[in-house]
């Protein structure tokens, strides 16, 4: 059986020392091992940006695509081979700016993949511009007088469009992070995991210390019921979205694959391509 070390490769990440993405990588590798997966069972599909490089740092199958499009690629892959564990990963710019349309529609569609957003509230790879997750007033190279646009609240947004699994965590809590990724993968359907993954270079506001002071861990709240959607929404609004843990999970909703009429257990990628003559003749006869 594979251990988390089997999911490591020899590539040295090009992330800055202290980057939150290191923990996300480690948590992902641990989660795969904890779930008893082998490297060839897993595919990590990522977007563009610092965090998008993550697919190259996991010893598994992986595709590093175009900016903002990790989700449709991951869904196509999962539909082609439903035996694979497919994880999409990228930054907040990838998921909530250029790829926001795909995020919303992936939630609606509910293909059984896990989406991990490494949310650092700033654009890193392009050297420090505002992101859709930057708070109003946040100063960057593209907002020298402070951002005048309001920030996206991804967890509330996900609940609103009907997500079946919504979780949030932070890079400094490897244990919780690993746990929510495991639960996200186990969840049958689309799961969204937003990870506060501090950018030590371009975000001097939302730092590790800042999160330590401001985050509320739902795991410590005995009365919290993650199956209660209105409680989830209330909690998020109460704490300005700054909560961690599994925020909401709907175990009843069927995945897209389960909803497709005639979709087989055997992956499409393993099925015979050749149409038999009888079937062909039947199709052709409809045009007579």
């Amino acid at each position: 059986m594979a251990t988390f070390k089997d999911f490591r490769n020899k590539v040295k990440p090009n992330w800055c020392p202290g980057c939150g993405d290191f923990s996300v990588l480690a948590a992902m590798q641990r989660a795969f091992a904890n779930l008893g997966l082998e490297p060839h069972d897993v595919a990590v599909v990522s977007g563009i940006g610092c965090s998008g490089r993550i697919s190259g740092y996991v010893n598994a199958y992986g595709l590093h695509g175009v900016h903002g499009r990790a989700l449709p690629i991951a869904q196509g892959l999962k539909l082609a081979n439903r035996d694979l564990t497919v994880v999409a990963a990228g930054g907040d710019g990838d998921g909530f700016a250029i790829g926001m349309g795909h995020t919303v529609h992936s939630i609606r569609r509910n293909v059984d993949i896990t989406y991990i957003v490494m949310d650092n509230q700033v654009y890193g790879l392009t050297k420090g511009q505002t992101s859709p997750r930057s708070e109003m007033g946040f100063k960057t190279k593209s907002t020298p007088s402070g951002s005048i646009e309001s920030a996206i609240h991804p967890m509330e947004m996900a609940l609103t469009v009907g997500a079946g699994f919504v979780a949030q965590s932070v890079s400094s809590d490897l244990k919780q992070l690993t746990h929510v990724i495991e639960e996200g993968i186990k969840h049958k359907g689309f799961s969204l995991i937003n990870v506060y993954s501090p950018c030590v270079t371009y975000n001097k506001v939302n730092t590790y210390d800042w999160f330590k002071e401001n985050l509320v861990n739902l795991d410590n709240d005995e009365n919290y019921d993650a199956s209660n959607r209105s409680m989830a929404m209330q909690k998020l609004m109460e704490h300005h979205g700054l909560v961690t843990g599994i925020i909401y999970q709907n175990k009843e909703r069927k995945s897209y694959e389960e909803m497709i009429k005639g979709f087989k257990e055997e992956p499409l990628a393993k099925q015979d391509l050749m149409l038999d003559r009888e079937h062909f003749d039947k199709l052709v006869a409809e045009f007579a």
Binding site: L77, A80, L268
Partner: peptide, 16 residues
């Protein structure tokens, strides 16, 4: 864009 990238993901996965 989603259509095209989904097709890429699917072909990468091995389905036509």
């Amino acid at each position: 864009i989603a259509a095209m990238t989904m097709v890429i993901g699917a072909n990468y996965g091995g389905v036509r």
